[in-house]
Design a protein around this nucleic acid. Structure first.
Length: 304
DNA sequence: GACAGTCAAGTAGGA
DNA sequence: TCCTACTTGACTGTC
């Protein structure tokens, strides 16, 4: 585990601010948009500083940072122009502290949808995510992760459609897009086939793989996924979680299973990955995981 | 201030 | 056929 960067998604429960602020579509106004984005960016700045202070160098920025960014209602709102200075400042902070950023658009991004309207809104949403990374001045090692979308009654065809549409995406989107295995639509093997077809890197999700796989052990699965990341993609990203025993299959645990995580990290050995902790209690688990990494790195050499 | 219903968007699976 | 979950609950009207 040479320099594992640890992270958590979107929200820091220890801070008294949220970068996920939004409003109802019916409440849309130029003023509301401006005040919400300004508050979200200010909170994001605090969040990143908190992360740096606690050596959590991987962070998933909320897709809500700019509410309704890909919705027609906001088509005339130039958020990139109005907040250019703030966004550039945030990006400079990310680069100065060697932070890693990811984004995870919602379930409404369905690139292979049979509906033309859904496909178009999906492309618009992905373009917003790429625009955000562009506005931050971040390179193609900062990623946008999505799932296959749906099977639409024909799993083979759905992957073909995904591949075809992937090829038509704007370069700024395509260069940042990665696909994550899930337990419903696309197993790791499916994602690897997509990689073979269009070159998209595969983000390995430990929990989803434990639920749905084709016999690959977790480490074998991880190695296969890691091999899909090229130099321009940076260190492979991994989503780490365990099953919440009290909830439905696939539900993320509320707290970190420290022993499970320790075992996971030990088995990484020399593998270079950045780990996103998809644990419900957010930064609290990330701090625990940080301790585990430091312990395993030994005295005098904190583990990245 | 607390609470409950609702919120831009799609899809599959379960009740 | 309706409800739920998802990546992250958050917003808003009512009491």
């Amino acid at each position: 585990m040479p320099g594992v960067k640890l992270g958590y998604p979107a929200i820091n429960q220890a801070l008294a601010c949220r970068s996920t602020g939004t409003f109802r579509l019916a409440s849309f106004s130029d003023e509301r948009m401006t005040e919400t984005i300004a508050a979200n960016l200010a909170c994001l700045r605090r969040l990143l500083a908190w992360n740096v202070e606690h050596r959590l160098l991987f962070f998933r920025i909320t897709s809500n940072l700019v509410p309704f960014a890909s919705h027609p209602v906001a088509a005339g709102y130039d958020w990139r122009g109005r907040f250019a200075a703030e966004l550039a400042g945030l990006g400079a902070y990310v680069r100065a502290h060697d932070l890693r950023i990811s984004l995870h658009p919602g379930q409404f991004v369905v690139l292979n949808s049979p509906s033309e309207a859904t496909r178009a809104s999906s492309v618009a949403e992905l373009t917003y995510h790429a625009d955000l990374l562009d506005a931050l001045g971040l390179d193609t090692t900062h990623k946008v992760q999505i799932h296959l979308g749906g099977r639409h009654g024909d799993a083979e065809r759905s992957m073909e459609v995904f591949a075809q549409r992937h090829a038509t995406l704007p370069p700024s989107v395509r260069s940042r897009l990665v696909i994550e295995n899930d337990e419903r639509d696309a197993s790791l093997a499916d994602c690897l086939r997509l990689h073979a077809a269009v070159g998209i890197p595969v983000l390995f999700d430990t929990l989803h793989h434990s639920i749905r796989n084709d016999g690959e052990t977790p480490l074998r699965g991880l190695d296969l996924a890691m091999a899909t990341w090229g130099p321009a993609d940076g260190t492979p990203m991994v989503d780490y979680s365990t099953q919440d025993p009290a909830r439905r299959t696939g539900a993320h645990a509320v707290t970190l299973d420290v022993e499970h995580f320790r075992s996971f990290v030990r088995r990484l050995r020399r593998r270079d990955v950045d780990v996103m902790l998809e644990i419900k209690n957010k930064e609290a688990s990330a701090l625990q995981a940080r301790v585990v990494l430091d312990e395993l790195a030994g005295p005098g050499e904190p583990g990245g």
